[in-house]
Simulated assay, not measured.
Amino acid sequence: MHMTSAPHLLTEDRPEFDRLLDEALRTAHDRPELATLGERLNAEQLRTMALGASALLTAAAAAEYDHYVKVREELREEPAAGPAEGVADDGGGGGGGGGGGAGVSAVVAVLAPVLAGAAMMIFLLVGYILKLIEPEPAFADTLLTTGWFFGALTAVAILVAAIGLLVAAVRNSATEVVPQPPEAVPEEVSRAREAWLHALLERGIMPFLRDALADPTAGTGFPVPRTPGAGRIPDLGYTRPDFTSPGGPAQGTRPGYTAPDFTSPDFGGPETGPQ
């Protein structure tokens, strides 16, 4: 459900209002003044009314909210520490050559077993195919010997690459930066937040819910209009517009008309005698 928030309530704090309202409605039966919940109005109806009057409810704790926002913004505006930039610069300048060498070594460690294994397969395949030919070519044994040599070279390259990866893993674990746990909310900010939520609940939400349940016309959906400042429940109804005709009875009688007086063509005026 979309919440209509107070104009001064920041977007990041709107869920707090919604959560606090839901919690108050959930525990309403634990408060004697809200024991009549469900008789005239249920929780969803009260929630809708409270969301519509959120500007009025949050205004009851405006002083505490302004203090909370001020403390929070002061904490965010504190200058960030700068050692991280210096460490990054030192690492970039001193480790440039080492990084390049490590990159070449990694490429060689990966490509050497692949290339040696491919050469082994080619020489062995061609050598065994030549041995099937009659008469057998003289260089068939040479190809087989070369293939087995590349096979041994492949095994050695794989062993060297495994050792290199193990050494790199040990070095990285020694220089690995352990992630720090999330920083706890400062005590001053936490106290300001709790003060705002307490004031919002006790001076805004709870009095509104109590007045809504005590209002005998609240269950109709269109309460009797209230004078400004008469209570916490806003006027959620409307009155039927009173339409009148343009020009009431006091302005005169309704205009009328008379039918035209037609005469026969054979009838003349008084000056004409009968024929």
Score class of each variant (00 low, 15 high):
Glu44Val: 11
Ala214Trp: 07
Phe267Ser: 13
Pro225Gln: 04
Leu159Lys: 09
Gly147Glu: 05
Thr220Ser: 15
Gly219Asn: 13
Gly52Ile: 02
Glu23Cys: 06
Phe17Thr: 00
Ala174Met: 07
Arg232Ala: 15
Ala152Val: 03
Leu165Asn: 06
Ala162Ile: 07
Leu20Ile: 05
Leu165Met: 11
Arg191Pro: 01
Leu37Ser: 03
Gly268Asp: 03
Phe267Gln: 08
Asn42Ala: 09
Phe222Thr: 14
Leu21Ile: 05
Pro32Tyr: 14
Thr36Cys: 07
Leu57Asp: 01
Glu74Trp: 07
Val114Pro: 03
Pro260Ile: 04
Pro255Met: 04
Pro260His: 02
Ala184Tyr: 08
Val170Asp: 08
Gln45Cys: 11
Phe243Ser: 05
Thr48Cys: 06
Glu85Ile: 12
Pro274Val: 06
Gly38Leu: 03
Gly248Cys: 02
Asp22Thr: 06
Thr272Ser: 10
His67Asp: 15
Val69Tyr: 05
Thr244Pro: 01
Thr27Asp: 14
Gly98His: 07
Thr175Ala: 13
Leu21Asn: 00
Gly269Arg: 09
Glu12Ile: 06
Glu187Cys: 04
Leu57Ser: 00
Arg210Ala: 15
Asp66Glu: 12
Ala152Glu: 07
Phe222Asp: 15
Ala106Ser: 10
Leu25Gln: 07
Gln275Ile: 09
Ala162Met: 12
Gln45Thr: 08
Phe149Val: 06
Phe123His: 08
Gly98Ser: 07
Leu165Val: 11
Leu132Gln: 14
Ala140Ile: 04
Met49Glu: 04
Thr48Trp: 13
Ala28Met: 02
Pro179Leu: 03
Glu12Val: 10
Pro135Asp: 02
Thr253Tyr: 05
Leu10Cys: 08
Val160Asp: 03
Leu165Asp: 10
Leu125His: 13
Ile158Trp: 11
Pro274Arg: 02
Asp261Met: 08
Gly97Phe: 14
Ala155Ile: 04
Ala195Gly: 04
Thr48Tyr: 14
Ala62Trp: 00
Tyr68Phe: 14
Ala174Asn: 05
Leu111Glu: 15
Pro249Thr: 05
Asn42Glu: 11
